[in-house]
Design a binder for these strands. Structure first.
Lengths: 196, 196
DNA sequence: GGTCCCATGTAACCGGTTACATGATTTA
DNA sequence: TAAATCATGTAACCGGTTACATGGGACC
C-alpha cells in the first residue's frame, strides 16, 4: 500500500490552479492550458507542456480521475475526484501566498549606472513601455465584454486590477523616460561645453 | 578540451542579475544574496541557497573567478572575469524579457464564484491588502534615503515604480473589498427576506 | 562555558522549461 | 495531395526550492 499516494501529498500552487479549472467542468489537459492562457495567464502562467506533468501527478495522487477518449491521439478527459474537489475548495479559502513579480527591465534600470549607456537603457525601457501599452489596450477592450456577463463578476475584478497596474506602469514609464531624456540632454550639453 | 566551458553557454536571466552585483565590486556569494535581498528583491528574487549554485556554474563557465579566503568556513571572494564583464554589459543593453507576475490571490478571486464563500474570499483579500500596505509603507520610508544620494538615482526610479504599483494595488483592494461587502449585505438581506 | 540565534554553505529533489515528435486540419 | 499550420503529447534537462548541516558570536 503506497502511502505516497494516499497521504496529504502537498501540492504546488500551480496544481491548485490546474484543479480550479476542473471545477468548471471535466476537460482535457490541453483544454486547461487553453483556458489558462485566455483567463489567468496575466497573473499565473507556465509552459504549455507543464499541464501534462501536472495531470500525471494529480491522477497518481488521486485528485483527478481520467477517462480515455476514442481516437488516435491519447486524449483523456480529466474529472475532479471528491478528494480533488475538497482540496481546491479548501485552497480557495486559505490565505494566498505573497505575489511574486519578476522584471528584468527593472533590474537593468537598477544597474543602469553600471551599464553607463543611457541611450541603451532608454531604448530598453521604451520597448518595455510599448509592450505594456499593447497589453493595456487589450485589457481595456476586454472589460466591457466581462462586464456584460454576471458570471464574470470576479474575473472582471481581476481584470480591473490588471488595468490599474498597467496604467500606473504606463504613467511611470512616461515620467521616467522624460527624466532620462533630460539626463541625456544635460550630458550632451556638458560634453559640448567640454569639447567646444 | 571541453567546449562546454568555452562556448557561449547561454546564461539564465538570474545569472546575469548575479553578475550585475559583481560589477559593483568583488564579493562572496553570500554578500550577493544579502545585497539582492536589500535591493532588487521586489522585482527579482530566488531562494538564498541559489547563489551558490550560480557561483559554481559561473566559475565553471569562466564568467567569474574565485579566490579563497582563510578561515574555517569555505569563504570565497568572486571576481568578474573579462568575459563575465562583457556578458553583463551586453545583457544590460539588450531588450528585457517580458515581466512575470504571479499572484495566488488573483487566481483565487478569479475562481471566487466556484468557492462560493464570499466571506472567505474577503478575508483572503484583506490579508493580501494588509501585506501590501506594509510593503508600501516601507517603500515610502525608503524613498527619501535614496533621493539623498546621487548614485542611487536609478534605484530610486525602480522604487518609484514599486510605490506606484503598490498604491494602485491598495486602491484597487479598497474598492474591491467595498464591492464584496455590498454583495455580502445583499446576500444577507435576501436570505432574511426568504426566511423571514 | 553552555545555549541560542545568525552566518554560511551543501545536497537532493522536483517543478517547470526547452526541445522534440506526431496526428489532424486547413489551404492552395 | 502536398505543404503548411495547428492540436496534442512526450522526454530530458536544469534552475531553483526545501531541507539539512556546521561555524561563530552574542548573551546570560
Amino acid at each position: 500500500m503506497s502511502n505516497r499516494a494516499s497521504t496529504a501529498s502537498k501540492l504546488a500552487p500551480g496544481d491548485f490552479v490546474f484543479l480550479a479549472f476542473l471545477t468548471w467542468e471535466p476537460m482535457t489537459a490541453y483544454d486547461i492550458k487553453k483556458f489558462m492562457a485566455e483567463s489567468v495567464s496575466n497573473f499565473w502562467s507556465t509552459a504549455h507542456s507543464q499541464v501534462y506533468q501536472q495531470a500525471r501527478r494529480l491522477v497518481r495522487d488521486g485528485f483527478v480521475r481520467e477517462q480515455a477518449l476514442p481516437g488516435a491521439r491519447r486524449k483523456r478527459v480529466l474529472h475532479l475526484t471528491p478528494k480533488g474537489r475538497r482540496a481546491v475548495m479548501h485552497w480557495l479559502r486559505q490565505p494566498a501566498q505573497p505575489p511574486q513579480y519578476f522584471s528584468e527591465a527593472m533590474v537593468k534600470l537598477f544597474f543602469a549606472a553600471q551599464a553607463g549607456d543611457l541611450k541603451a537603457t532608454k531604448r530598453m525601457l521604451e520597448q518595455d513601455r510599448d509592450r505594456n501599452r499593447g497589453l493595456l489596450a487589450g485589457f481595456e477592450a476586454l472589460m466591457p465584454v466581462l462586464q456584460a456577463a454576471e458570471e464574470d463578476r470576479y474575473p472582471a475584478m481581476t481584470l480591473d486590477l490588471g488595468i490599474r497596474l498597467h496604467r500606473a506602469l504606463a504613467e511611470w514609464a512616461d515620467d521616467t523616460l522624460r527624466e532620462l531624456d533630460q539626463d541625456l540632454r544635460r550630458a550632451k550639453g556638458s560634453k559640448k561645453a567640454l569639447t567646444g
